[in-house]
């Protein structure tokens, strides 16, 4: 695979684990959306963001970190619960999505509530059912910690944690979570080829799914109603909550299907446990949400095609991503 280095230059030598290479993506990908000119990538800042991501100090009772809901082993999704799980064992009403290739997204969250990337961590930090904290208090707590002071000094020649430093460093870590080396990418790069079954599944995918889950990011970043029934418990109206436009009722952000194998359970409320169930929703679900849906169900594919499609979806996985040392808990930082 040919890689293009977009935000080069690892600055300085980190006393944390070195992060190398900086930020790469394949030639067949579009350009990222994040405004890097306001937050140029720097390996030390990225490492500080990584520490913050794993530090429960960001929550009110210091029990929940970002990683509690976004596990590196599941491409930063959450698999224990259908919906997420915050301080005092409170359940939220949505499933935690994968955190990969975020630099390409214009709007975050299942309903696109967050359009300004750097501010995203404020949502879980201040949400009463997630981390239940207050930004001002988080800054006070962090400013008492020598390990943060040392790291801040190394970066800024000043050891104060500010909202801007906190949020921009966290952005750097999140932006660096790029998964671009699936079998699909290797086939596109001419390194590997699909099996016959995968090739057949790819054709089914192109015919029925690519309109919304558009390659190479496997999402068109739009909001759509994919025909799932309204969940009786949460009655989540999706994008409508943000836009208040009638056509957006029950529309959710089209999620990427990269690393989909690891990010079960599926849909905004985690209603389907397996990919098979998801495919059966698309191919056999006659009772759901008709009329309003942006896709007319059932989609016509045979059982063999369904299996082929499943084989294709598995080519979107990059298992090595889940075990990248540079994305995991930074033990050395917390031992100091």
């Amino acid at each position: 695979m040919k890689n293009r280095v977009i935000l080069g230059i690892v600055v300085g030598v980190s006393c944390l684990a070195a992060w190398n290479p900086p930020f790469q993506y394949p030639d067949h990908w579009p350009a990222p959306q994040y405004a890097f000119e306001h937050n140029a990538i720097d390996s030390l800042k990225r490492e500080l963001g990584r520490a913050l991501f794993y530090d429960p100090i960001l929550s009110a009772d210091s029990t929940v970190s970002c990683a509690s809901c976004h596990s590196p082993y599941q491409s930063f999704a959450h698999t224990d619960h259908a919906v997420s799980h915050g301080i005092n064992d409170q359940l939220g009403n949505r499933n935690a999505p994968v955190l990969i290739n975020l630099a390409w997204q214009r709007q975050l969250m299942h309903d696109g509530a967050i359009a300004f990337f750097d501010f995203q961590p404020l949502a879980p930090i201040t949400h009463p059912k997630e981390m239940g904290e207050d930004l001002r208090h988080v800054l006070i707590k962090l400013n008492r910690q020598p390990r943060y002071q040392r790291e801040l000094f190394a970066i800024y020649q000043d050891s104060t944690m500010t909202s801007e430093r906190l949020l921009k460093c966290m952005s750097q870590f999140l932006l660096s979570l790029v998964s671009a080396d699936s079998k699909y990418d290797q086939v596109q790069g001419g390194v590997l080829s699909f099996t016959e079954q995968e090739q057949s599944g790819y054709r089914v995918f192109q015919a029925h799914c690519a309109r919304c889950h558009t390659p190479p990011m496997f999402t068109n970043y739009a909001f759509a109603n994919n025909g799932i029934s309204v969940d009786p418990m949460y009655q989540d109206s999706g994008r409508y909550k943000i836009s208040h436009q009638a056509q957006d009722v029950f529309r959710f952000k089209v999620p990427t299907l990269r690393n989909i194998e690891f990010s079960y359970p599926y849909m905004h409320d985690g209603r389907y446990a397996t990919l098979r169930e998801v495919l059966q929703h698309y191919s056999r679900d006659y009772h759901s949400n008709e009329g309003a849906a942006d896709v007319s169900l059932p989609l016509s594919f045979s059982e063999k095609e369904e299996t082929d499609l499943l084989a294709f979806l598995l080519t979107l996985s990059e298992p090595a991503f889940n075990f990248k040392k540079e994305n995991q808990f930074p033990r050395a930082f917390f031992q100091r």
């Binding site: 405004a35 509530a113 359009a115 750097d118 404020l122 949502a123 930090i125 909202s163 801007e164 921009k168």
Partner: peptide
């Protein structure tokens, strides 16, 4: 200004003039 990302001073989100769940 929203697009410029996090800023300090009067636009610092600690001023409590930022909606975290609706963003903005």
């Amino acid at each position: 200004t929203h697009e410029r990302g996090v800023m300090m001073g009067d636009l610092d989100p600690v001023q409590n003039m930022y909606w975290t769940w609706q963003a903005g």
